[in-house]
């Protein structure tokens, strides 16, 4: 039996709109945040959960962490129904909401941690060991005794993450954990998540808009849109579906001219540089390179990988999101 088993989960919110002029009642609209979503996740998996804003990602996380009760469908996490065995359930999971704070603003980080220790009833010895591990891995030592309000965003996020992991949860939900972080902090955070997943076997469900996060961490990805699951599987395969165009830039020694290329290649020239856009499905990259080499010796060649954000945008467009 899978660790997380979600079947036909649905949730509808009622949103009241501002009253229109001349009407006495406010109009209510139903927002179908989730419409029959099903999936399963095995223990120890690190799954990316993506989709545009308002797709229902956060709603899923909130249901699976026992905060919200769904209108229909079922969900089992480690054999527990999150919203029914709430206390039992939340003791074993950790959640990081990237845009919210769980640590206390005006008191040193370490004090917030010891409150969490008491809330999750972590034995002192286990707590010390875990704290040492997290301090090392997330480099918390320089600011453990500093009040939260004095930390930079990157430091704060690391502290927040550590706070969610102090009780060694078997499952970790990450809701946009890298939002607003600089490159160094982002990379450090990714390394840590990988470590936590591999070393401690923590199952991780990662929700983010940062496709670099997903590409660096997850093999498996689920795509959600308008409350429905649109894709569930391998990330590289998903990308290759939308990876229809690539661009190569090259320059020949001695300014040789391009050989004739098959139809479907778009060529533009900037000085001595040629820019060739082609579709790898129609013209395999190896064949194109052979062709190019036949015209002269190549001095410089760069292949630009398609920007992953563009791919995702193309995918969302095609899926009608």
């Amino acid at each position: 039996m899978p660790y997380i088993a979600v079947d036909q989960l649905s949730k509808t919110f009622t949103v009241r709109k501002k009253r229109e002029k001349g009407r006495l009642t406010r109009e209510k609209t139903a927002v179908h945040a989730l419409q029959g979503v099903s999936f399963s996740v095995e223990q120890g998996e690190l799954v990316g959960y993506i989709g545009p804003n308002g797709a229902g990602k956060s709603t899923t996380v909130k249901i699976l962490s026992g905060i919200l009760t769904p209108d229909g469908g079922s969900a089992l996490v480690g054999g527990r129904v999150p919203w029914q065995n709430r206390k039992e359930h939340v003791r074993r999971i950790g959640v990081v909401f990237g845009q919210r704070s769980q640590l206390w603003w005006d008191v040193p980080v370490i004090d917030s941690f010891s409150l969490l220790k008491d809330i999750y009833r972590v034995p002192t010895e286990a707590y010390q060991k875990r704290l040492a591990e997290l301090t090392e891995a997330l480099d918390l030592a320089p600011f453990l005794r500093t009040p939260l309000r004095l930390l930079s965003l990157g430091q704060r996020m690391r502290a927040e993450l550590a706070g969610s992991l102090l009780h060694s949860p078997e499952l970790l939900f990450l809701d946009e954990p890298t939002i607003g972080l600089d490159a160094v902090s982002k990379l450090a955070l990714r390394d840590f998540l990988k470590y936590e997943n591999e070393k401690n076997g923590t199952t991780i469900l990662l929700t983010t808009h940062d496709m670099e996060d997903i590409a660096a961490l997850c093999r498996r990805v689920m795509v959600l849109g308008h409350g429905k699951k649109l894709y569930d599987g391998d990330l590289p395969e998903l990308l290759s579906r939308y990876d229809t165009q690539r661009v190569i830039t090259l320059r020949y020694d001695g300014g040789a001219a391009l050989p004739p290329l098959p139809d479907g290649c778009q060529v533009s020239r900037e000085g001595a540089d040629y820019k060739i856009a082609y579709s790898p499905q129609a013209l395999p990259t190896a064949r194109l390179l052979t062709l190019l080499q036949s015209a002269g010796s190549i001095r410089e060649l760069t292949a630009q990988p398609e920007n992953i954000d563009h791919l995702i945008a193309a995918m969302y467009r095609e899926m009608g999101l």
Binding site: I67, K87, E88, R91, F97, R100, Q102, Y120
Partner: peptide, 13 residues
């Protein structure tokens, strides 16, 4: 108001 209460809601308390 800000929704930070989400954290308090997922505590075993």
């Amino acid at each position: 108001r800000t929704g930070d209460i989400a954290y308090d809601l997922c505590r075993p308390l």
